[in-house]
């Protein structure tokens, strides 16, 4: 009898810690496949979705009331604003061009059919503007912004996805995480035509002044270099180049293939790279350099004055931990960064 009692107690105690496991096995509380993540990585995903949603809502009269409608004559426009800090807690619908006052906070989406100018220090949750947008200095976008042309003032913070159908112009001291437009302009633009300087992707251009660098190629036609590498000025390299160290490409060189370096890539002025540029560390591009890209850095990307990434016919991407550039930089395509600015403490 006592034997049975002992073994019952023994097995009960032994099984006790396994109860949650047995329970989960039988009840299947968490037995579905990992959920499919619905968020889409396409830059315009949210704005496109919002447009469909907003058009539908605005066509229904009774839901229309959930929108704050702002016209040039309404009290929320800059023309009639008393410039006080104000929080607009509703979705906003802007049917015609308007300038909005400074210091306002929009906690929900804005849908504008025409051009919109946001005053200084405006905080925007998300905005879909079918016309052009002008953000005055120190504005903040927290989720997304989509417009035809976006003009960004100084010291703005563009968190989330910012995309334009035609162009994004960014003044100095701004931070951002994801930009996408056919043309993204940084800083004041010189009125110098890049084509006059020979800085566009032009396969017909004269390369007679360049010296072709002889590379030892592997079976796949790549040149692999163990250690650091310096490419002399005015060199022409037509293969893919992999450097297991740092890479310096001197002034005026032309690289027709893709390049990769385990350490930093330093590109001097007037260098053209027609392939992708990949580095586990920094990528520093000099003045008037041209990079077709994509430019992929696991640390920072810095572009010098007049540098270009991508081209009119073929957009490109810069993806890096952080990004910085001088004035007159043009990027055709997308910029993705993970930190707001380059940490100079590492330098």
């Amino acid at each position: 009898m006592w034997d049975i009692a002992f073994f019952t107690a023994f097995f009960a105690i032994l099984l006790l810690p396994f109860t949650p496991a047995i329970k989960e096995w039988l009840l299947k509380k968490d037995a579905t496949p990992l959920w499919r993540v619905s968020t889409n990585d396409e830059v315009r995903h949210f704005s496109d979705r919002f447009k469909v949603f907003a058009d539908k809502e605005l066509s229904m009269a009774f839901i229309k009331d959930s929108y704050k409608i702002i016209t040039p004559d309404s009290e929320f426009s800059a023309a009639r604003s008393n410039k006080l800090f104000r929080v607009i807690d509703k979705k906003v619908y802007v049917p015609e061009s308007v300038r909005l006052p400074d210091n306002n906070v929009y906690t929900q989406e804005i849908y504008a059919k025409s051009h919109v100018e946001f005053g200084r220090k405006t905080k925007i949750y998300a905005a879909l503007v079918l016309g052009n947008v002008k953000l005055d200095d120190e504005c903040i976008v927290t989720r997304w912004l989509q417009a035809n042309v976006i003009e960004v003032g100084e010291s703005c913070k563009l968190f989330g996805r910012v995309s334009a159908d035609k162009k994004i112009e960014i003044k100095s001291n701004c931070i951002f995480s994801r930009l996408n437009a056919p043309i993204i302009e940084f800083g004041a633009q010189d009125n110098i035509d890049r084509e006059d300087l020979g800085i566009t992707q032009d396969r017909q251009k004269d390369i007679s002044h360049l010296r072709k660098v002889k590379c030892e190629l592997d079976a796949a036609g790549r040149c692999i270099i163990n250690g650091d590498c310096i490419i002399p000025p005015y060199s022409l390299i037509s293969c893919d180049l992999i450097v297991r160290g740092s890479l310096k490409i001197s002034h005026g060189s032309l690289i027709l293939g893709n390049i990769k370096a385990y350490k930093s890539i330093s590109i001097e002025s007037r260098v053209t790279i027609e392939g992708s540029i990949v580095s586990r560390a920094d990528i520093l591009a000099g003045d008037w350099s041209y990079l077709q890209g994509p430019v992929i850095s696991e640390k920072n990307v810095k572009l010098g004055h007049g540098a270009t990434v991508g081209s009119v016919g073929q957009s490109s991407t810069i993806t890096a931990l952080a990004f910085a550039c001088a004035d007159n930089v043009l990027v055709y395509g997308t910029i993705n960064v993970r930190l707001p600015e380059i940490d100079t403490a590492d330098d």
Binding site: D41, E42, V43, R178, N180, S276, V278, Q292, G293, P294, I296, S297, E298, G310, Q314, S315, S316, T317, T319, Y332, G333, T334, N336
Partner: peptide, 12 residues
């Protein structure tokens, strides 16, 4: 975490 290529969006 390393995912250096994930954000490439526009490219040839």
């Amino acid at each position: 975490q390393r995912y250096p290529y994930l954000d490439i969006d526009s490219a040839n």
